[in-house]
């Protein structure tokens, strides 16, 4: 067990270091959420005036949404790197070694979680600068970050599962594009749930993106209803476990195919 943890940390170290060696990646992953927050913040600023929207300031409403969306999109591409490692024989090299098999996926997820935390903090600070208010304070921000990172971990595991099964970058891109944007729009990232068409509201009930946004937004509110936050978190934990199990099963399929 300790060896699973230490191997995961070694792999995490490898992935984080390799990311830091890609300045273009760092730049894009920092600039993208900033652009989203400022662009969508300006574009949809007036929709809070629609009766029944239920929020006073759009930037207050949007910031947790962008935190969740950023974690979702970073995680969606997590499987790309695994495909490259398989193609280069890196995965096989570790499979021949005593390295814990779970560390080969877990290291990527921990890296994703670390990146998610950093991105979340940056977006929250940026939101503050452009006028967002977080009545929930530090506990609220922490809860939002945890919810977003949980979602990212689950989606990252799914992305790795797709990567290891398809072993094809084009498939990965197609699936991610097909899934990520609709999932975002069928949640309250941009739009209050009360104003969505009825069928979309029903879908949102089962949308993990919605669970994360709802938990984060509730936690940031003044006098949050913690039962709402914790129940959504519970579902996210469950979802993460299911995705983790799927990734493990997918990895076994790969091992059988070698």
């Amino acid at each position: 067990m300790t060896h699973v943890i230490s191997d995961t940390l070694f792999m995490t170290h490898r992935h984080v270091r390799n990311l830091l060696r890609q300045p273009a990646w760092i730049l894009i992953s920092l600039v993208q959420p900033v652009v989203w927050l400022l662009l969508y913040g300006a574009l949809f600023r007036k929709i809070v005036e629609i009766p029944g929207f239920g929020a006073a300031s759009y930037i207050d409403f949007l910031t947790p949404g962008i935190v969740v969306m950023t974690c979702l999109f970073s995680a969606g591409w997590s499987g790309m790197d695994l495909i490259e490692d398989i193609d280069r024989g890196v995965v096989d090299r570790f499979l021949v070694s005593p390295a814990s098999r779970s560390s080969l996926i877990a290291g990527r997820l921990v890296q994703g979680a670390l990146v998610g935390v950093i991105q979340s903090v940056i977006i929250v600070v940026l939101g503050l600068i452009v006028g967002a208010e977080y009545p929930g304070g530090i506990p609220g921000i922490a809860a939002l970050t945890i919810a977003a990172v949980l979602l990212g971990t689950a989606v990252g595991a799914l992305s790795n599962a797709i990567g290891v099964l398809s072993r094809n970058v084009e498939t990965m891109v197609a699936v991610s594009n097909f899934v990520l944007l609709p999932l975002t729009f069928m949640s309250s990232v941009f739009m209050a749930r009360a104003l969505m068409p009825g069928w979309m509201q029903s879908i949102a009930t089962y949308n993990p993106v919605e669970w994360a946004v709802r938990a984060g937004r509730e936690a940031l509110a003044a006098g949050p209803d913690w039962s709402v936050v914790l129940s959504r978190m519970g579902w996210l934990v469950l979802f993460t476990l299911v995705c983790g199990w799927l990734a493990t099963a997918a990895f076994r399929v790969y091992q059988k195919s070698i």
Binding site: R14, D92, R93
Partner: peptide, 15 residues
């Protein structure tokens, strides 16, 4: 007990 140098290198190019 074993070391293995596979046909496909398996090195981390970014390291």
């Amino acid at each position: 007990a074993i070391g293995c140098v596979a046909q496909k290198s398996g090195l981390d190019l970014q390291a």
